[in-house]
């Protein structure tokens, strides 16, 4: 089975880090993973994306062509990266994002990701980690155990508690869906 994920938002929201964490957690689970990202001015604001392929098999073509899961944290990112051609894809957007009801997306979720980071955790910067908790809570694409271990390994020392809270907040959001 092969899963293709596209994580998008604005530059600086930590989505490339989130993509790397997800891929590394998949490796820890014994799967294969490839991560790619958009380069250029997007890395400094504007719409930015990271893409991850997770598979039990060897991954030949490294680019995402038909995402099974799309995350968009901003309106700009949703406009640019939500691909409505695959109506079966799971699409998770921040509650601040408005999508036309005509997209035909069957699995569209609007979730207060940024608001949760800002008000429940108190730091908007952890919105990417809240989103990871939410995605993994909804899909179990990687184990929660390896997700948490990778988050702690990849992120700066001293932020462990903050990031654990963010992950838990994401899992809680998933349960409410």
């Amino acid at each position: 089975m092969q899963l293709e994920l596209r994580l998008s938002g604005s530059g600086g929201q930590g989505l490339i880090t989130a993509g790397i964490i997800l891929a590394e957690a998949a490796l820890a689970d014994g799967k294969n993973a490839v991560q790619t990202q958009s380069y250029g001015p997007e890395a400094r604001g504007g719409a930015s994306k990271a893409e991850v392929i997770i598979s039990d098999e060897i991954i030949d073509f490294p680019k995402v062509t038909r995402p099974n899961l799309i995350l968009a944290l901003t309106q700009d990112a949703a406009a640019k990266y939500v691909d409505a051609s695959n109506s079966d894809a799971m699409v998770i957007v921040d509650e601040s994002v408005e999508l036309s009801p005509e997209t035909g997306l069957k699995k569209l979720f609007r979730v207060p990701i940024i608001d949760t980071a800002r008000h429940e955790i108190g730091r908007e910067i952890v919105a990417n980690i809240v989103a990871l908790g939410l995605i993994v809570g909804l899909t179990q694409i990687v184990s929660q155990e390896n997700l948490e271990a990778t988050v702690i390994k990849r992120l700066p020392r001293g932020t462990e508690d903050l990031n654990r809270m963010a992950l838990q907040a994401g899992y809680d959001l998933a349960k409410q869906i």
């Binding site: 891929a23 294969n32 991560q35 380069y39």
Partner: peptide, 10 residues
């Protein structure tokens, strides 16, 4: 090339 240069793999 930019494909192999920038993608992350195991």
């Amino acid at each position: 090339d930019e494909i192999t240069g920038h993608m992350r793999e195991k």
